[in-house]
C-alpha cells in the first residue's frame, strides 16, 4: 500500500468506527455508556478550547468552566419555561459561543500583565465570580433561578427533529444519547479541525512565540494585547459552544455543575494528554472522562475475581483515580502524547 492509500484506509476505518461506536456501545455496555460518550465529546471540545489558551498561548487559566457556564445558561434561559422563550438551537449555540467569547475578552483585558500563577489565581477568581453570580441572581429580579437551577430546558431540535427522544431512521432505532452523539461528534470534529488549523496559522505561531518568550515575541512585532485577547476569546468560544450543547443534552442545569473542580479537571486533561498537542489533548479528555466511570466497576471486578466485594467500590473509586493521575504523570511527565515543540523545550532545559 502506498502511504496515500494507507492514509485513506485509516481515515475510512476511523469514520466507520466512529459511526458505529454508539450502536456497539449501547448494545454491549448499555445506554449509560453512550451518555458517557456524549459527555466525553463535550469534554474533548472543552479541552481543545482550553488548549488554545494554555497549550498554544501558555496562559494558565483556572476559570475556564465559566465560559462553559455562560454558554449553558445562555441556552437554558432562552429555551426553557424560565422566561417562556423557546429559541431554536441555531440561534442559541452561536449566541452562547459569542457571548462566552465576549466574556473571554472581559477576562483577558485586565489580566494582560499577569503571568503564571498570578494569572491562574485571577482566572480562578473570575470563574468563581461567574458561578456566584449565577447562583445568586434569583433576587431581586429572578434571572437565573439561583441554586434551584433551570429545569425543563428544550432538547436540541434540528428542523423539527428532536434529539431528545428515540427516533427511527433508515430502519434503525436511535436512542436520544445516540442522536446527541452524532450531533456532538460533528461539532467536535469541526472544533478539532479549527484548532488544528489555528495551530499552524499566523496566529498560532504568534501564540507559540508569546508562550516561549513574551519579550522576544513583542520585539518581533507581535501585538501582545491583541494576540493574548484573541487566545482568551477563541478558547472561550469553544467553551460556550460546549456549554450550550450540555444544557440541551441535560435538560437541567444548576450552578453547582460549574465549580472549580471542573476547571481543574479540564486542565488535567490537557496536561495529562500532552499540552499543545491536539491528539494528546483528545486522549487526555477521553481518559479522564472514562476512567472515573470505568472505576465504578471495581465492585464487579472484585465479585468476579474474589467472589465477593471486599472493599466498597465507592470507597475506592476516587482513590484509584487519584493514584492514576499521579502514576500517569510520573511515567510520562510531558503528557501521554507530548507535542513535538514542547518536547524540544524539554530537551533544551
Amino acid at each position: 500500500m502506498t502511504a496515500r492509500k494507507q492514509a485513506w484506509f485509516t481515515f475510512v476505518a476511523l469514520a466507520i468506527g466512529l459511526a458505529l461506536l454508539p450502536l456497539l456501545v449501547e448494545a454491549g455496555l448499555g445506554r449509560s455508556w453512550v451518555r458517557i460518550l456524549d459527555l466525553t465529546l463535550l469534554y474533548i471540545m472543552l479541552a481543545v478550547g482550553l488548549n488554545i489558551v494554555v497549550g498554544y498561548a501558555g496562559l494558565l487559566d483556572l476559570g475556564y468552566i465559566a465560559f462553559y457556564a455562560v454558554g449553558a445558561y445562555c441556552y437554558a434561559l432562552l429555551a426553557s419555561p424560565q422566561f417562556g422563550l423557546h429559541l431554536p438551537f441555531w440561534v442559541l449555540l452561536p449566541t452562547g459561543a459569542l457571548l462566552a467569547g465576549v466574556f473571554g475578552l472581559l477576562l483577558g483585558a485586565p489580566t494582560l500583565r499577569l503571568r503564571g500563577d498570578y494569572l491562574a489565581i485571577v482566572t480562578l477568581g473570575f470563574g468563581e465570580i461567574i458561578r456566584i453570580f449565577l447562583n445568586n441572581l434569583n433576587t431581586p429580579i429572578n434571572i437565573t433561578n439561583g441554586p434551584q437551577g433551570v429545569n425543563l430546558i428544550d432538547p436540541i431540535r434540528i428542523a423539527g427533529f428532536s434529539l431528545g427522544k428515540t427516533q427511527h431512521l433508515f430502519g434503525v432505532t436511535f436512542s436520544s444519547p445516540q442522536l446527541y452523539y452524532y450531533f456532538f461528534l460533528v461539532l467536535t470534529l469541526i472544533a478539532i479541525f479549527v484548532a488544528l488549523r489555528l495551530q499552524d496559522s499566523r496566529i498560532g505561531r504568534a501564540w507559540a512565540a508569546i508562550r516561549e518568550d513574551e519579550l522576544a515575541a513583542q520585539a518581533s512585532g507581535i501585538n501582545l494585547r491583541n494576540t493574548k485577547l484573541l487566545a482568551f476569546a477563541m478558547g472561550a468560544t469553544f467553551g460556550g459552544l460546549a456549554g450550550g450543547l450540555f444544557a440541551g443534552f441535560q435538560g437541567f442545569i444548576s450552578p453547582e455543575s460549574f465549580n472549580l473542580m471542573e476547571s481543574i479537571m479540564i486542565l488535567c486533561m490537557i496536561v495529562l494528554g500532552g499540552m499543545g498537542n491536539i491528539p494528546g489533548v483528545i486522549l487526555g479528555a477521553i481518559l479522564l472522562t472514562v476512567l472515573p466511570e470505568a472505576l465504578r466497576y471495581v465492585g464487579d471486578l472484585q465479585r468476579a475475581w474474589i467472589g465477593h466485594v471486599v472493599v466498597d467500590p465507592a470507597d475506592l473509586r476516587m482513590l484509584l483515580f487519584g493514584f492514576a493521575l499521579i502514576l500517569m504523570m510520573l511515567f510520562r511527565p510531558a503528557g501521554l502524547l507530548p507535542s513535538r515543540r514542547h518536547l524540544n523545550e524539554l530537551r533544551h532545559d
Binding site: 454491549g28 455496555l29 448499555g30 466497576y297 464487579d300 468476579a304
Partner: peptide, 9 residues
C-alpha cells in the same frame, strides 16, 4: 476489562 465484566454481570 471492567466494561466487559459489566456486561457479563
Amino acid at each position: 476489562v471492567s466494561a466487559s465484566l459489566l456486561t457479563a454481570c
